[in-house]
Design a protein around this nucleic acid. Sequence first.
DNA 1: GGCGGCTAATGAAACCTTTCAATTTCTGCG
DNA 2: CGCAGAAATTGAAAGGTTTCATTAGCCGCC
Lengths: 338, 338
Amino acid sequence: MIEPAGVIDVAERAGVSVGTVSNVLNHPERVAPATRDRVLRAIAELGFVRNEAARQLRAGRSRTVGLVVLDVGNPFFTDLAGGVEKTAGDHGLSVVLCNSGDDAEREEHHLSLLQEQRAFGILITPVATKTPAIDVIRGRGTPVVLVDHSSSARQCSVSVNDQIGGELAMAHLIDKGHQRIAFVGGPLSIKQVSERLTGARKALRAAGMRPGALTVVETRALNVAAGRQTGDAIADLPAKTRPTAVFCANDLLALGVLQTMTRRRVPVPGELAIVGYDDIDFASAAAVPLTSVRQPSAQLGQAAMELLIDEARASHSHQHRQVVFEPELIVRESTTPD
Amino acid sequence: MIEPAGVIDVAERAGVSVGTVSNVLNHPERVAPATRDRVLRAIAELGFVRNEAARQLRAGRSRTVGLVVLDVGNPFFTDLAGGVEKTAGDHGLSVVLCNSGDDAEREEHHLSLLQEQRAFGILITPVATKTPAIDVIRGRGTPVVLVDHSSSARQCSVSVNDQIGGELAMAHLIDKGHQRIAFVGGPLSIKQVSERLTGARKALRAAGMRPGALTVVETRALNVAAGRQTGDAIADLPAKTRPTAVFCANDLLALGVLQTMTRRRVPVPGELAIVGYDDIDFASAAAVPLTSVRQPSAQLGQAAMELLIDEARASHSHQHRQVVFEPELIVRESTTPD
DNA sequence: GGCGGCTAATGAAACCTTTCAATTTCTGCG
DNA sequence: CGCAGAAATTGAAAGGTTTCATTAGCCGCC
């Protein structure tokens, strides 16, 4: 293990000053080609690697953006992360992916780490609707963009209209003639979930059906395991009162429900139609391909990153914007009997 | 946007020296309780946030470990990342997740960023078997642990025995009476893929079958799309020469193949049995629940992180170790006709 | 030959924290 | 009351880069 070389060593070897070395690294056009080559050679010979900590200390701000999501296990978020990372890369920024796991404490922990790192900016799908820590961070001058979460005009956000998504899903089920429908999702404190539910209720009213036609089953989490559990609860109901369709707040839940139905030989969609949400890759590969509400996840990530960059670069003239995408219903076998 | 406060401001406000402030932050036991409280109050009042860059500059090394994986879209890797992150968190380290996407160039890019950040250590599933950059990094004193990749004694690694996994899968198919089997996976340059193939061939020999019984279909990638494509190619073959079983190098491929078969009404496992690899959550939720080779992904991550910490803390007395886990075959409907 | 105007290169200061040897303050005891 | 020893606090140095006001070097033109 050799002592790592610094700019000073490079400068010495190349016979120039440290300032010149720095210029070769950051403003190559300012230094004469001959000198530049000499410096570059010295860098290669010494195996010099720039110390990002020192650069950052001087710059006062890092080149890293934090992306805090609710669940890395959910392909929706990894797709979104893909969009973020691509756009970030195009602007010379790197991304650190943080998983809050829908836990406010972990979210807070990640946020403080990001602040200590003087993150360039933060993209976050917050656990709670009201997160004072976020305002504090923005108050300190770090741009923050809310992702998959609509918001007031006081901050930038990127989202998909969850009410419309809920309406699309519900209207589709009503259209197929279902009279007893269950909404499966939770915790309801998650905004996306409650909005989708609101949309579903709206569709119910629009169709002139009584509110009792929709039963809400609140789950503890939005993953496959919770779906399986809920599936069992539903399958246990007597066929007469059992819902004939479920609208799940995301695809993981839907896949869990579907899995239980398959195991317990409840025909889908014959006895139970299922609609999911997100249209992840696995939705179409499921036991019965899932009808699902598609969200433009990668575009969402891209738009969020672009907003963040705008807020960072034009900090004074920046106008907060709320970008809202439209979801799209993808109909598959889980709601359409052959 | 207020000027952010530094240790100096805090010291001034609390009426102590900067050294004491630093001690409150890093060695609270060294400072008298009364003083400590005064400093903590000043910190709260000023909204002081430690500057990680400066701390790092002084320390010479960061508290971040890099985890470079082949595909964040693959749940196997996100599960693995979960294990890594948990273990890292327990030791006060944070993790940055980097996606190489099986592209050597992106891998290299991530590695240089990690070096510039003076990463505490690096966990990597390398794209190529031979990656000189890794040796250079280790030579500079940064611990590196290979993940899901066995290796020579000259470095730490954590892996699951892929040959045995291949053998298990293949032996199972042979046991079910299949005589024409396809191996689907690629690029074969990925070690995990070629090892699984080697294991499959071994099982073939052990069963006394001719090598021609196994056809190798090399894919461009290990994702659902590649699986769908291969599925079409297989389904296009005349029933007489078509394999009666496929062993896919991972579950994403298997799900893709399965999806095509379902769409094209080729009965699974009736006309085509399918075995996957990794046993991701979605494998059991598939159209036909997938038989798959389970890997202890989270444990893998945990073990890798522990090895890394050992290498970092006991750098001189450290003995490189190769931890190898055993995979396990999970049999489901995709290979067992009712 | 001298001088203006230009490009290229210089080097010290600043960024903020941690460390550690040195100093001050406290405690208990003779 | 003084002193030894322990405990608490101090303050300057170090860590590696970037910035920017200066200085040096060069060219062409009067």
